[in-house]
């Protein structure tokens, strides 16, 4: 989902930067507030950031014969709500743009919008919906992680289609073309990311139960939490 440096026309680069900036500023304030009011959250915040850091560094093969990388933004969105990931995701993107020539400064706004804003919100929505429909914590985590990943790449494809509409078929044709590159490749990766999220939350529900209860991820009474039933 990294749009390469200089690969968005200036008007689009500026537009997406302006669109992403308020989310990132709001996210930075959310992180500061969380750390100030709940210093005990710092450990889990670090874990959420680290998870995104690892996963976005690893390119994995897919059934389409191309490779891509997961985003890992779902964990933080589920634990701390999406605004926190607007900052953490952007930090990861900035690191990759500065040191790895992956993504770029002119495309940072567009990339942050897809990976740090749309992805986390879509994942969080899928997580909440799954839990409300009775999917349990781990079902929600799987849906949230997978959708945060997939939604990021769909957003990138649409951003590129908007910037480079097809000469004949326009935006729709270009969207189909870019979705063909990104979305299908991403499906197995999104499933894999969902499974990794389930693994991580299985550890967290036993080791970080007090934090998860305070964050509202687990119910206060340990006897009627979904994870207890599953064991």
């Amino acid at each position: 989902m990294h749009i390469a440096e200089g690969f968005l026309p200036p008007a689009h680069a500026i537009g997406w930067t302006v669109a992403a900036a308020p989310f990132v500023v709001h996210g930075a304030r959310a992180v500061v507030r969380e750390v100030r009011e709940h210093p005990e959250s710092t450990l889990l915040l670090g874990a959420a950031g680290a998870f995104t850091f690892v996963l976005s560094a690893i390119k994995l093969p897919s059934v389409t014969g191309s490779s891509s990388h997961p985003t890992g933004t779902g964990v933080g969105a589920i634990l701390f709500r999406p605004p926190v990931m607007a900052l953490l995701g952007t930090v990861v993107l900035l690191f990759q743009a500065m040191l790895l020539a992956h993504g770029g400064l002119t495309t940072l706004g567009a990339n942050a919008f897809s990976m740090a804003v749309v992805g986390p919100w879509a994942g969080y929505g899928a997580y909440r919906l799954t839990r409300r429909l009775g999917g349990g914590l781990l079902g929600g985590v799987f849906a949230g992680m997978a959708l945060a990943d997939l939604a990021t790449y769909v957003t990138t494809a649409l951003q590129l289609a908007l910037a480079f509409p097809d000469a004949e078929s326009g935006f729709a044709g270009a969207a189909g073309k870019f979705l063909g590159v990104f979305a299908v490749t991403q499906v197995p990766l999104a499933i894999g990311e969902g499974l990794l999220g389930v693994l991580l939350f299985r550890v967290l529900t036993t080791s970080a139960r007090p934090e998860l209860e305070r964050l509202g991820v687990l119910a206060r009474n340990p006897r009627d939490t979904p994870t207890e039933e599953r064991r």
């Binding site: 200089g6 026309p9 891509s68 992956h102």
Partner: peptide, 18 residues
């Protein structure tokens, strides 16, 4: 997939400006 998208764009004659 990132570089495939980049190639698609370059095929259309676009020159990166940065």
């Amino acid at each position: 997939s990132d570089s495939q998208a980049t190639e698609l764009i370059e095929d259309s004659g676009y020159q990166p400006w940065f």
